[in-house]
Design a binder for these strands. Sequence first.
DNA 1: AATATTAATATTGTATACAAAATTGCTGCT
DNA 2: AGCAGCAATTTTGTATACAATATTAATATT
Lengths: 235, 235
Amino acid sequence: MQGVQQSQTTGKQGKYRHEDIYRSISDAIIEHRLKPGARLREDALADVFSISRTGIRKILQRLALEQLVTITPHRGASVTRPSADDAKDIFDARQLVECGLMPDVARCMRAAEAAELREMASQERQALRDGQQSTAIRLSADFHVRLAQLSGNEVLADFVERLCSRSSLILAVYGNPGHLGCESHDHDELIRFLEKGDGERAKAFMSRHLKTIESSLSIVEDDNSTPDLRQVFGV
Amino acid sequence: MQGVQQSQTTGKQGKYRHEDIYRSISDAIIEHRLKPGARLREDALADVFSISRTGIRKILQRLALEQLVTITPHRGASVTRPSADDAKDIFDARQLVECGLMPDVARCMRAAEAAELREMASQERQALRDGQQSTAIRLSADFHVRLAQLSGNEVLADFVERLCSRSSLILAVYGNPGHLGCESHDHDELIRFLEKGDGERAKAFMSRHLKTIESSLSIVEDDNSTPDLRQVFGV
DNA sequence: AATATTAATATTGTATACAAAATTGCTGCT
DNA sequence: AGCAGCAATTTTGTATACAATATTAATATT
């Protein structure tokens, strides 16, 4: 809702509109304001953002390529519901990449960057205190992404961004209420290791951190759209 | 050309057409039949594939998101010319991911998979012997992708696929003629390590393998479109 | 003769209109 | 009353038409 207002009131005509709308939808999904399974009708979206369906389709295509939404032919778009396998693969990927990046980050880390990260961690804690769960979830993802960016490798940073977005979906489906992904406490401790340039310890810490998040999930291979019924009733 | 014929003659109407066309263009880029910098006019492509511009645009969007083509506003699409920084980041990413995957691959490897990989390596050698450079380039990329798939992690396998596609572009820009990316000889030796289940040795070998490819490039930050002139003449 | 301004052309960006497909609700038949 | 077939509605898929913008060429002026 906020995003909508923003892009309508600011008189951005043309070039940046699409990017704004993309962010609005993307944020809504990452912040769990749009939950997995939610349908995203083209007409409705076009209406809300006062844009034609052509533009919305382009944006949905992009979101689909990033696996945040799923497009079923003749059925339309909906927020992706990650499978248990997806969850495992994504967290394994994060283990490999985010941990592997820690030594580089520790090497590139300067005082300014450490301060920036601390500020982010602080905002995250604040959001949690204020009960703004949605915001906290996104800030937590932002922290991990910013960390990856500090490695200096844009390609891997982009990949981590995608993984974090999808992790947010996983949390929405398999997460336990009240128990968010990251303990912001953890983030502060991680910054200390990085600041000291201790890449190896940061790596180990990140590994535990991710394992903690993953093991906090209750991954029960529950609902698939249709083949469900056959299994549920013993037919 | 072949791809075009294929999708025109087979009476695939509707759903699979787009995927076919996507592959045709994608292959043409990866195989260097479309070189970096080549313009991809929407009208021309729509004409060639006898489809409307709408469909072509969708495909170009996708290719742009995968960084195989670059879309400049009001200027259109062209095959991406990776920068030297891109090249570095991509090969660093491959080091991290592909090497990190080797232990998993070694663990999952069965006789059937080893045979399949050997067959691919053999085809690659054959293509090289026959002077079919384009085919060899793609087969080499295919080998690396298949390897990643054997790890069982789809997410990372997809990422490796993207990295390999972009690596092909890098080879087109910075590669020395006659000196292709992978020595197919290398691939066979790698399979042996994997077959023995020696993940660590495979990892080390892959690392050397990728380093060899990267160091075979002549990365000279040559041509940027416009700011060139100022630097060339000592103004 | 050189440059600046303007017009023409080519190409992309956007919206709308039409066609195809699938789901949903209704009606009639058993 | 229940099921099957059919029609109507909803929603996506595709193409075409129009508008905006950038590039190129030509002309006029200094």
